[in-house]
């Protein structure tokens, strides 16, 4: 799911003009999605031995996404 989310970011955020999305926001969103992708992968591996720890890592990753726009992001222009 995170992979397809990264694809959506690539299509919508990375291709948006600079006046709509600042390079910082782009960078933060890309970094966040790649970090959580790695964490989800780690959670899948950990869950093979400690299922609840794996679930805990997943929940931690979800908390990062509670606020969809990264800090410092402005609303897109209408």
């Amino acid at each position: 799911m995170n992979v397809t989310y990264i694809c959506l970011i690539w299509e919508l955020i990375d291709r948006a003009p600079d006046d709509e999305v600042s390079p910082t926001v782009r960078k933060i969103m890309r970094l966040r999605s790649i970090t959580t992708l790695c964490l989800f992968g780690a959670a899948a591996a950990v869950a093979l031995i400690y299922p609840l720890v794996g679930l805990g890592i997943c929940i931690c990753c979800l908390i990062v996404y509670l606020r969809p726009d990264p800090l410092g992001a402005e609303a897109p222009l209408t």
Partner: peptide, 14 residues
């Protein structure tokens, strides 16, 4: 009931 595979499945589908 806390089997590893479903948890791994959930994590990997995330």
């Amino acid at each position: 009931r806390l089997n590893q595979l479903p948890f791994m499945r959930l994590s990997s589908s995330s």
